[in-house]
Write a protein that binds this DNA or RNA. Structure first.
Length: 561
RNA sequence: CGGGGUGUAGCGCAGCCCGGUUAGCGCGCUUCGUUCGGGACGAAGAGGCCGGGAGUUCAAAUCUCCCCACCCCGACCA
């Protein structure tokens, strides 16, 4: 492709609305343009990369026996009503106004619809069906460019099996295929075991990429690969060492002392000598939750411990429940149920509120004074804490979900009546698995991970072009001639080449565009080198440059790829 | 849906408080000339319903009200 003819509208300046690197780079390199919030057009350069990603996915899906479909985005609402998902998706689903159609946010229903009546015998199973299609979701707030859009490209596949054991096999095939796909795309990813949420089903895993633009927060151990959403993640958090001697309880006047920090300052003690109290309400019944120092209550873990539906007590309720306002609440004398974080187990000589405004109590011995407490892991993992598996330090960061695989079970086949006959002629709902990849997210994540201050750094696997040929001073016939030869020959060797043949662009301008667009190898043809029958090769990633004779050039090229 | 912010040339912005000739600047674009290995220089140009509507006023990019779009934080997120 000649750059003078290519529609690759690069931007020198950073568009005001783009915040994260992938979004900025996609706009600056002319890969995408926004049409409306969360709705993007892919321009030729961006689409070229997208197709490369799709093809990697196709190869890996085909390798596990997947068969590609192309399903409609426009679906009859009726099918979605049979599985109750019009209601489940709610406002997230787009509805067509003048027909009873919806825009498909995913395709379980449609695949199951086609399986119904078509897959009748256990002999026809397993099947793995997939497609790469645009999905529509009315996100309340699109953001981060392509990462969270109202319309996005997704590879989704569905397995149909006759038994749970066979589902395991289909699932494992996908688990391996997904690893291959992300590795081939050059993405650094990790896998998180997750709950499968509203989709229903049992085991599931998410393929995640570390990114500040992510929507999930995860704890991750680089050493052993432990990864979990912070909602459920655990760490080895040091328990409090019990002092040899337990003091007696004593009341302290602490006027206007509310927070743990204030208390520590006032009494000149450390955080780990304090038990913080929070009041929660479950089904109208108050529960006192105790945390060590400034540890925050993880409400997901709390629900796991006491049951779902807990809420923090309103400030007005506190006095009625405990006799004091927030900041002066504590376990001693509290009459209701007490739940404590396990770090507090066996602790003694602790400080906490006195259930009397402006007073705290010291010398609290949890074994002696808070006998009714039940202990659970209730805290949120903090960075630097130790991994429960290998004791290495945990990292906590934001991450983007790139892929999700899970064992669906029979939710959809039952709802739509997709049954098969087993060996004994008995009817069963087909057992399904469901597996998704955000195809355009792969692109965005690749860019998040592979750029520098100059622009994109492609490697050969996803690069829209292998080589960026730069002819400096295209007014000189020798240079034009040399460039045309290289351009022709490389294409004969079936490489993709973008050729900056612009006559009016200065050298520096071309170099900067080349660095921005980020093709793995730049070939620079200039006057001085050419007089010595040489050209220059620059490796985008490392910045290394080689001056090389035209004879050796094609050999060197093969080495590079 | 709550909070904050922004809409002025293709892109990035100034002007708005405090209303007043023809609405500016940088980049980009067109033409000519010079330059030609790290975002060149000179000259001449083109390009605007100042997001939309209603109002106030002799007069509105500027003040008031309504609407719309987009961004950020939060809620939400199969």
């Amino acid at each position: 492709m000649k750059l003078s003819k290519a529609f690759i509208p690069t931007l020198k300046e950073v568009p005001a609305d783009a915040v994260i690197p992938s979004h900025i780079l996609m706009l600056r390199t002319g890969m995408v343009r926004m049409l409306s919030a969360g709705i993007y057009s892919f321009l030729p350069l961006g689409y070229k990369v997208l197709k490369k990603i799709e093809n990697i996915i196709r190869e890996e899906m085909d390798a596990i026996g997947g068969q590609e479909f192309h399903l409609p985005g426009l679906n009859p609402r009726e099918i979605w009503e049979q599985t109750n998902r019009v209601e489940a998706f709610g406002d997230t689903m787009f509805h067509v106004k003048n027909r009873d159609y919806v825009l498909a946010p995913t395709h379980e229903e449609i695949m199951t619809y086609h399986a119904k009546g078509a897959l009748k015998s256990y002999k026809e199973l397993p099947q793995i069906w997939y497609q790469i299609q645009t999905k529509f979701r009315n996100e309340p707030r699109p953001r981060s460019g392509i990462i969270r859009g109202r319309q996005f490209l997704m590879k989704d596949s569905y397995s149909f099996d006759s038994s749970l054991e066979n589902l395991d096999k289909s699932y494992d095939l996908h688990a391996r295929a997904y690893r291959n796909i992300f590795e081939r795309c050059g993405i650094k990813f990790f896998v998180v075991g997750a709950s499968s949420g509203a989709m229903g089903g049992s085991k599931s895993e998410e393929f995640m990429v570390k990114s500040d633009a992510g929507e999930d927060t995860v704890a991750y151990c680089e050493k052993c690969g432990y990864a979990a959403n912070v909602e459920v993640a655990q760490s080895i958090s040091a328990d409090i060492a019990r002092n040899a001697e337990s003091k007696e309880l004593y009341e302290i006047s602490t006027p206007n002392i509310k927070s743990i920090d204030e208390l520590c300052g006032f009494l000149n003690i450390s955080e780990t000598e304090c038990a913080k109290s929070r009041i929660y309400v479950l089904d109208g019944v108050p529960i006192l939750v105790l945390m060590l120092g400034n540890d925050e209550v993880n409400e997901i873990k709390l629900e796991a411990a006491v049951g779902s539906g807990v809420r923090p007590a309103h400030p007005e309720e506190l006095k009625e429940i405990t006799g004091a306002d927030a900041g002066s609440i504590g376990p001693v004398g509290f009459k209701g149920r007490i739940i404590a974080d396990k770090r507090l187990k066996n602790a003694n000589n602790m400080f906490s509120g006195a259930n009397k405004n402006d007073y705290h109590i010291g010398g609290i011995d949890f074994d002696r004074d808070v006998k009714s407490a039940d202990f659970f892991d209730l805290r949120t993992v903090q960075p630097g804490e130790k991994c429960t598996r290998c004791s290495a330090k945990l990292d906590v960061f934001k991450a983007i979900e790139l892929g999700h695989i899970f064992k669906l079970g029979t939710k959809y086949t039952e709802a739509l009546g997709a049954n098969f006959l087993d060996e004994s002629g008995k009817d069963h709902p087909i057992i399904m698995g469901s597996y998704g990849i955000g195809v355009d997210r792969v692109l965005a994540c690749y860019l998040e991970q592979n750029h520098d201050d100059k622009g994109i750094v492609w490697d050969f696997r996803l690069a829209p072009f292998h080589f960026h040929l730069i002819g400096l001073n295209m007014k000189k016939p020798e240079i034009v001639q040399a460039c045309n030869d290289i351009y022709f020959n490389l294409r004969q060797m079936s490489y993709d080449v973008i050729f900056d043949d612009r006559i009016d662009a200065q050298a520096g301008f071309k170099f900067n565009d080349a660095d921005l667009l980020g093709m793995p190898v730049q070939i620079i043809v200039g006057d001085k080198n050419l007089q010595e029958k040489c050209v220059e090769i620059k490796i985008r990633k490392t910045g290394e440059r080689y001056k090389i004779s035209l004879e050796e050039f094609y050999i060197k090229v093969k080495e590079l790829i």
